[in-house]
Design a protein around this nucleic acid. Structure first.
Length: 558
RNA sequence: UGGGGUGUCGCCAAGCGGUAAGGCAUUGGACUCUGACUCCAACAUUGCGUAGGUUCGAAUCCUACCACCCCAGCCA
């Protein structure tokens, strides 16, 4: 790889380039280190995109590493979902490693080494006492009375901790740094705690567990990570990270921790704790509910991996701890990608029957382009005949200004077929419109129109001999629009039920052209003039279900 | 009152001493057999948190101030 051909696009890349040129780094190794304790959501895409793509850019690699050092929160169910999510996103990790299995032994050895070096000690303060002696933001902490034990004594105690000689919570291993350090994270952080807890991977092998500030840098070192990229929430842990790299690892080519902004989206509920509550309350249908911001949720809804990645790239690295963007920023990329790949089809949501009074035959085939933006997408057959259905809203008795759909006595083009003129409105006993009587203009057929009639509007339709009924799932924002920061509202005491939109998911029936019978789960369509839809996994042979991924932009000013 | 950060258009975001990129949103308009897409135009008028200073010249350097965010788990 020729470093001179690489154009750095942010400060980190500038730094990496310098490190590579100076020889500080031999290659770029990053990691994707989820704690397997919940499903990923859109925010994770940013973290993984940054980690995978910076490595890729410099010809490096990325490991998927389960950061599973807390047995009380972790679960194999989640760990298993991550490989699938990553594959869907299009990222290929160099390997999948479980920190608990691959690194705990070595990390234990490092801890012993640190004890021998006088960098760690066994402390017998209770959790409350540790907290009380840590000091406050403005006052220094106090040294633990156990701080000055000899390395021999510490080593003996630590081994006994490991061997299960002491009850849970009775002792900890602490780093000997500085109890009066202005950064609280440096005040003798806990390296190991005692907790008899079954672990989803390593079972009951351990009763002592390494803590984040210690375990994370050591995992990075053992793995060969050169750049440990995390969110800005860890910015004031960087100094601790570097301390452990120096005192625990102590070799050259140590990793560097660098931080990017967390990404949040207006009006989207995030936070494991809240999402879990919503799932448990039954207000949604599981973690992959199409209204949910989880990856499995947005995927089911019909969002694409490309859209998500384009979106997070557009937001950038970020400078503040958290960057909040409007939902429309995401939607732009969703529409953008779907517009390129979605197959066009005609579906009538609220049918209004139209009889073509001057049409005599048994109907005829017409052709519809599968995707006008992709010439290789081909066409599919649809039908036109004496009886068709159009959208109710495409006919008006009292048309607003600039309404260029069907009106009494007016004309409109049927997509892919003919121009029709509305001659008569037929009402039922209740005085409602029952159907329309129209005539078609035989010379106006799409493809060989010799009629010379200029027609402003084109509407979609289905023919009575070429449709079947489908189910549409209409999806609105899960959260009421006034809650721009739902997690904040909840933290301030709002109730889940109060911030959620009551009818965020509704079902309705629609008439779809028969072509849609070929659809498979996760196939993406544009129902012309309506929006993008994705076939849901709940579909059966007799009931095709489509999720409304997103509407089309509507430029019609009423 | 400690430490770590950040302040450039409604929202993101370039810029790193030479006279305010770009994207989203918005508003006009063109095109259109999807009122989509696409295209074109407008959108910080000495303005880059504020006040001073240095300089021929500052968002960029210096000084002081102000505002906002994060940190006191044996969570990650």
């Amino acid at each position: 790889m020729d470093l001179n051909n690489i154009t750095p696009e942010n400060e980190l890349e500038v730094e990496i380039l310098e490190d590579l040129k100076s020889g500080r780094s031999k290659e770029v190794i990053t990691r994707c280190p989820p704690e397997p304790s919940g499903y990923w959501y859109i925010g994770h895409v940013k973290a993984w995109t940054i980690n995978f793509e910076t490595a890729q850019k410099f010809g490096g690699k990325t490991y998927l590493r389960m950061d599973d050092s807390n047995p009380t929160k972790e679960d194999g169910e989640f760990a298993d979902s991550y490989m699938a999510d990553l594959e869907w996103l299009g990222f290929k990790p160099k390997a999948l490693v479980y920190a608990s299995e691959s690194y705990f032994d070595k990390i234990y050895d490092i801890a012993e080494k640190m004890i021998k070096n006088g960098d760690a000690y066994v402390c017998e303060l209770s959790a409350e006492e540790v907290s009380a002696s840590r000091g406050t933001l403005t006052e220094p902490g106090k040294n633990s009375p156990y701080r000055d034990r000899t390395p021999e004594e510490n080593l003996k105690l630590f081994r006994e901790m490991r061997d299960g000689k002491y009850p849970d919570g009775s002792k900890t291993l602490r780093a000997k740094i500085d109890m009066s350090h202005p950064n609280i994270n440096m005040r003798d952080p806990i390296m190991y705690k005692i907790a008899r807890q079954h672990h989803y991977r390593v079972g009951d092998k351990w009763c002592i567990w390494p803590q984040y500030d210690f375990v994370h840098p050591m995992e990075d070192c053992l793995e060969g990570t050169t750049y440990s990229l995390c969110d800005k929430g860890f910015q004031d842990h960087r100094i601790v990270y570097e301390w452990f790299v120096q005192h625990g690892w102590g070799k050259p080519y140590a990793p560097k921790q660098r931080e990017f902004s967390r990404l949040t989206i207006e009006n989207v509920l995030t936070g494991k704790r809240w999402l879990k509550q919503v799932v448990n309350s039954g207000l949604v249908n599981g973690w992959d509910d199409p209204r949910f911001p989880t990856l499995v949720g947005v995927r089911r809804r019909g969002y694409t991996a490309k859209a998500l990645k384009d979106f997070v790239r557009s937001v950038g690295w970020g400078s503040t701890i958290e960057v909040t963007v409007p939902y429309s920023a995401l939607e732009y990329y969703v529409r953008n990608d779907l517009n390129q790949i979605a197959t066009r089809a005609m579906v009538v949501m609220e049918p209004l029957k139209v009889v073509i009074t001057n049409y005599q035959g048994n109907g005829e085939d017409i052709e519809i382009e599968n995707n006008p933006n992709d010439e290789n997408a081909g066409k599919h057959k649809a039908r036109f005949g004496r009886e068709i259905f159009i959208e109710k809203e495409d006919f008006s008795l009292n048309p607003p200004p600039k309404y260029n759909r069907l009106v009494e006595g007016g004309i409109v083009r049927l997509k892919g077929a003919y121009i029709i003129r509305c001659n008569k409105v037929i009402y039922n006993e209740k005085g409602e419109i029952d159907h329309l009587e129209c005539e078609y203009i035989p010379e106006s057929k799409s493809g060989n129109d010799t009629s010379n009639i200029k027609c402003k509007g084109t509407i979609h339709f289905v023919s009575a001999d070429n449709f079947f009924e489908i189910t549409i799932r209409n999806i609105k924002s899960l959260v009421k629009p006034e809650f721009v920061s739902p997690a904040k509202a909840l933290a301030e005491g709002a109730k889940i039920e109060d911030i959620l939109e009551p009818d965020s998911l509704t079902e309705s029936k629609a008439y779809a052209e028969n072509f849609l019978k070929n659809a498979k789960v996760e196939d993406k369509f544009q129902f012309m003039r309506k929006g993008y839809f994705c076939m849901d996994k709940d579909s059966t042979k007799d009931n095709y279900i489509f999720n409304n991924t997103i509407s089309l932009k509507d430029g019609f000013k009423k």
